[in-house]
Amino acid sequence: MSFQPVKFYQTGTFTVGNRLLAPDERSVQAGQQRSNAINSGHRACQGCGEALGARYAIDAAMAASGGKLIAANATGCLEVFSTPYPESSWQLPWIHSLFGNAAAVATGIAAALKVKGKQDVRVVAQGGDGGTTDIGFGCLSGMFERNDDVLYICYDNQGYMNTGVQRSSATPPAARTATTMPLGPEPGNVFGQGKNVPEIAMAHGIPYVATATVADLRDLEYKVNKAMSLHGARYLHVFVPCPLGWGTASHDTIRMARLAKETGMFPVFEAEQGEVTSVLKIRHRLPVEEYLKPQRRFAHLFGKNAHPEIIERLQAIADRNIRKYGLLDEEGK
């Protein structure tokens, strides 16, 4: 029989914590002293992937910066549920300006810190996919191009959920949204080319670009850490399922992220200076149906008036990701 090297502690690196690991090897989230950057009492929906992803990412960045961190936030769910007057959930200096300018606001903060000689204080900008891939894209690109010292984190839930689930340029093909209803011969969102912001970020040649999901905390924390160890423009694209917008059970948020990665629908990788340096391999490859079926936004592809041809096209997208990024290991599983 072939032995795996004794690399793991019962649950390997998959669980949040592990009592058997040395303290310095534990995740930030496992710590009793984690900053809980976004505190209890926020008004995110039950099982919100974005609330979770934001805490994962910002807590990690807080840990990496020794608590010296400032965040700029785009308009969107994250902003609305965290800071309705008179209460804020944020535990770090935080500013919300507009929907489309988080990257630029962060640039301004970074400039102020630089001129004041406070470069030990680090800056993150964050927004949803709408605030990143659509309305905030100009500012984001400008921030990249100038290589401003900002880590931009996009929490991608594939649509405008705050306004009632409309399509964004991150909405996947065939998905139902309030503006791409499952009607007519091509139900749901169009099969466009999509707007792959991680790749566009890489095209800017910035120091670091990575994708991650809320299903793999250790990977996400590694990437935040890596990003925080560098200066200049950095981009982290975190996949955060939305129970409300996707029509999934609130307890399935992490499972959906896991399935997106395991089917190849969402490739998880990192890139430095525009070149992919590592990918997170698929552990147990699954057909896209496994990912699509639990989501009501894809319900029109199944059942009585099923659209197997559309599922095939979605599978082709997953297959292409798998091929392009090399998401399977040598054994091809």
């Binding site: 649950t11 669980t15 949040v16 914590g17 592990n18 009592r19 995740s27 989230q29 496992a30 809980n36 505190n39 209890s40 926020h42 995110a44 099982g47 919100c48 992937g49 609330a51 979770l52 805490r55 994962y56 905390l217 948020t253 992490i254």
Partner: peptide, 12 residues
């Protein structure tokens, strides 16, 4: 004590 519940709770 894998800390999963502690980690995955979106509401701390």
């Amino acid at each position: 004590e894998c800390d999963n519940c502690y980690g995955v709770c979106p509401d701390n």
